[in-house]
Each structure stands twice: as C-alpha cells, then as structure tokens.
Design a protein around this nucleic acid. Sequence first.
DNA 1: ACCTGAACACCGTTCAAGT
DNA 2: ACCTGAACACCGTTCAAGT
Lengths: 228, 228
Amino acid sequence: MAVRTHQSQRRRQVLTRERIVETAVELLDASGKDALTVRALTGRLATGSGAIYWHIGNMDELLEAAADAVVATALARPAEVAPQDEIRAVALGLFDAVAEHPWLAAQLAAQLIRNPWGPVTLRIFESVGRPVSALGVPRDDWFTTTSTLVHYVLGATAQTSQRADGFEVDRAEFLATASRAWRDLDPDDYPFMRAIADQMREHDDREQFLTGVNLVLTGIAALHIKGD
Amino acid sequence: MAVRTHQSQRRRQVLTRERIVETAVELLDASGKDALTVRALTGRLATGSGAIYWHIGNMDELLEAAADAVVATALARPAEVAPQDEIRAVALGLFDAVAEHPWLAAQLAAQLIRNPWGPVTLRIFESVGRPVSALGVPRDDWFTTTSTLVHYVLGATAQTSQRADGFEVDRAEFLATASRAWRDLDPDDYPFMRAIADQMREHDDREQFLTGVNLVLTGIAALHIKGD
DNA sequence: ACCTGAACACCGTTCAAGT
DNA sequence: ACCTGAACACCGTTCAAGT
C-alpha cells in the first residue's frame, strides 16, 4: 500500500488515453468545443503535443471518444420496467446529458453524419431498440421503428441543447423575445409561425420533447401493435 | 442594351454578397466544407480577403447564408394537394437536398444547435407547419406536432446524408459490411443490433425515411384527429 | 464606398531527438 | 515504448493603405 502510494506520487500520473479523454471532457464542459485544443491539453496535462498524439490518432478521434464516454454513462442503466417507460427513460437520459454537456449536441450530430454507424450511434440504437423489441412490434419492423425514434430524439435534443444554462429568467426572456419576433414576421411568408407565436412563449422544452416521444410511440402502437 | 453589356464586360462582375454565397455553394458542393476557405474564395473571385469581409461578417455567416439559399430552393414549391402529401413532399425535398449537397447536413445541424430559431429553421418549420395546420390538428397542438415532424426529418436526413455518392454497388457493399459487423458484435452488449443485422443489409434509406414520416403522421392522426 | 494584401494570432499535426 | 517541443503548413480575421 505504502509502496503503491509512493510510486504513484513519484511518477505523479501516467499519461493514458483515458486520462486524455477525461481531461478533454473537462475542457469541453468548462468552456465548449473551441476550448479543446491540443495546446490546452498539453497545458493541463503538463506534457507535449507529441505525447497526446502517441495516445490518440487525432482531434476527431478524441472528440468521438469524449462523446462516447459521456453517452455511455448517460445510457448505463438497469433494464427498466415497462418497455414504453424504458424508451422514455433512455430518451430523457440523452436529453439531459446534452443539457449538462452543451458541446455534446454538435458532436453527436457530427458523428451521426460522418460515421452513421459509429460506436455512439450503435449504443443509442441498442438502448432504444431493446425496449422496442419488447414492445410487441413485429421483428421485421424493429429497424425502421427504432430508427424513427432515434432520429426524432437526436433532432429534438439538437434544437433544444442550448437552453439558457442556469437561469429560468433568461429562458422566459428568450422565449418572449422569440415569440415577439415571430409575431412580426411577414404574414404572407410566415402565417404558420405567427399563428404559433403564443405557444412558443409558453412551451417547455423538456415537456414538449416527451410529448413528441409519446406521439411517436402512439404511431408505433397504431401501426404495429395488434389489438390496441 | 449594348451599353449594359459593355459595362458588365468592362467591370467584369461586381463583387456582391450573392456572388460570394453562390461561389461558396459551388466550393462546398465540389469539395466539401473544408474546401470553403477565404483563400479559396479570393482565388475563385479574383479578389482579396478584405473584399470578402466587406460583404460578409465572417465564415459562419457565409455558411448560414449558403445553407439558407439551398434550403430556400429546395422548399420553394407550389402549395400541394392533400396536407399529408404536402408534408411528405417537404420532407423528401429536404432529404434530397441533403443528398445533393452533402455538406448541408452538418450545416443544418450546426445552425439548429447554435441558433435554434434562425432563418433556415424558421423556413423548415413554416413549410411543415402549414400543411400540419391544414390537417385538422387542434390549434393548441400545432407547435408540438410540427416540432416532432421537423425533428424527425432533421435527425433522419443527418444520418442518411452520406449515402455513397453515385454507385449503387458501393452502397450494397457498405450495407453488407455494416450488416456483417453487427453480426459480430458482442451478444451480451448488442443483442438488438445483431437481431436487425439482416434488415440493415436489405433496407433502403429513402424508403425507410418515408416510412418514418408515415409513422409520425399516423401518431398525429391517432392522437389529434378526431374520428379517425 | 469598396477593395488590396501583408501581417497577426491562432490552429492541428509531424518528426528528429531524447529517455 | 513513450515523450519532448520546435517547426511546418495551414487557418480566419484585421487593418493601414489605396482608389
């Protein structure tokens, strides 16, 4: 024990891939994507740029690993009760993870686009697909049904990822400003946006997100679950 | 007339914001996002960097304008027949625009995240929301219903934006490879992905996209349209 | 008003050299 | 095997200077 402690004190901390990813997440959480630079990493880790590149291939790979680490944590949960509740829990898990890590939304989108079946996407599909298959949906519809749910969840989390961090006051102000802006749009070009300006002012992102999940679940039940 | 031609020949082409945006779209279409640099623009337009910055604020603004131009074209259509068909047409319009302009997916995502109610998002919401309101959905549900549709469409177009440009052969190969990879996943960690590996090999992106739109439309009908 | 283009302050990444 | 850190080849953006 004493020896172990002594050793780790002497060598301080070994530079590992994990420690780099961890530090990357810290930098991203603290100051956003632009703050994650190789130079910032070498500063925090008291090392040189070559050391970083010894452990990770490049910046994209590091961002991918950071996103995967956060998503894995967000989705690591015991199997839930009813499949529908499990789906809602997974969806909210992602929604809240993106709220806590604002950089995550852009990173999820980037990976979905660049590498549509990379580890992060796979993880999300698996987490949503498992309860979908327990829902009574015919096997042939598992892929399409799960895709629809996942795509909705990712689209929705993207748009609502920048909710005013912290103050509910800011949030209300933001909604009121947007609502007013929609009222002032050209009636010929934007009749619909003007019509929903009031709903914009009063809506709650998280609640609306769940309503959307339920809407998709209703569609799934109506289309695929017999005798419902 | 002759004078006009003469003038435009003499001054060649005036540098305008539109011409810069146009050239930006050309560069993006030809070689992707990394190819759009201020230096590439000055080369093509035979001008200096300061001239670019005289007309546009910065690179982000240029990307936003490029996306808006492409989306505006993709969504500019006469009012369609039945609302459901109109919704499908708008969705496919975006889907195909992203297929034609692969850089657009990432740009739409970036703007959705950075500026959730910017001009592009507004345009898309309006195009989807108008037929939604004609669908018989109660007014109070217009915002939520339209959001669900739009979020699904954006999530789905993002993941399927990188379909092998050109050759269907490549596409089949890509699907087969992914399908095989899923088969080889850890059975404990990824039972669902393994179960749908066959569906992956045989699915068609565009068809699956439309199936998803129909699923959401079914949910809307079941929840909000009385006597259906 | 509109444009030029050198200069500035950054990047990610590489690589000879060290241990 | 693992790390150092100077050097390279890029970026976006600014700004004094021109017309």
